[in-house]
């Protein structure tokens, strides 16, 4: 695609770009549209599911479902809310599948374990990097201990509360948009967000009261 076309597409709104794709069926337009949200969908799915591979699956499945159902989009909601609704439903499928095959926790030894690609709170606990307990430099740079604790505690919230907290506090959706994404009422969104935050503050209370520990002290 030439730079002029790219600039032209960048100036278009989501809805205009979608309309153009409907008319022309040009796959580049579709890819441009999805690429705008790829990272956001991935990030939200990662925070909801706590697993990088599953988050990638969510992005991929969302793209496919979006392509299949693109003609069903109407302007009752924003394109972003509609796209996240598809992604949210895909996340729900994964969460339900996880619920079904929940088994007693087992401990596996895996020295090649990569925390980035595995679930933080999966049913299987993995003793990671047993040979070298210190985090690798890249991880240490990316995550402060505080971020790790927050991410872990976030996973302890009930799925429905975590989803609303992620969509509002991390992805920045309004209550109305979240109600459309999750398929519930405004009051339910408000309530889930209130209880989700309260629970998360409770979970983090001990950490906050003891004061953050610097990554170097580990």
């Amino acid at each position: 695609m030439n730079p002029e076309n790219e600039k032209l597409q960048a100036d278009l709104s989501d809805e205009a770009l979608l309309e153009k794709f409907r008319q022309t069926k040009d796959p580049n337009l579709f890819k441009s549209l999805v690429r705008r949200y790829q990272t956001r969908v991935y990030n939200a799915a990662y925070r909801i599911l706590g697993n990088a591979e599953e988050a990638e699956d969510v992005v991929q499945d969302t793209c496919i479902k979006l392509h299949q159902n693109i003609n069903k989009f109407n302007r009752n909601c924003t394109f972003a809310a509609w796209l996240f609704r598809i992604a949210h439903n895909t996340c729900l499928d994964i969460l339900r599948a996880k619920q079904r095959k929940k088994v007693a926790p087992t401990i596996t030894f895996d020295p090649q374990f990569n925390s980035d690609t595995e679930s933080v709170f999966d049913t299987t606990s993995v003793i990671s990097q047993a040979a070298d307990p210190s985090p690798n430099p890249a991880e240490a740079l990316e995550f402060s201990e505080q971020n790790e604790v927050i991410a872990q505690k976030l996973q302890e919230l009930p799925d429905i509360q975590r989803t609303v907290v992620v969509l509002h506090d991390i992805e920045g959706f309004s209550y109305q948009e979240i109600a459309e994404i999750v398929g519930t009422s405004l009051g339910t969104v408000r309530s889930r967000l209130h209880y989700g935050r309260s629970k998360l503050r409770e979970l983090l209370d001990a950490y906050y009261s003891s004061g953050p520990v610097s990554p170097a002290s580990r």
Binding site: K31, Q38, T39, Y42, Q60, N147, L154, D169, I170
Partner: peptide, 17 residues
């Protein structure tokens, strides 16, 4: 929560499609 790092996919998933 807002200071959590934004996670990005290892590869461009859309490109792979």
């Amino acid at each position: 929560l807002q200071s959590l790092p934004i996670k990005t996919p290892a590869v461009d998933i859309v490109d792979k499609l």
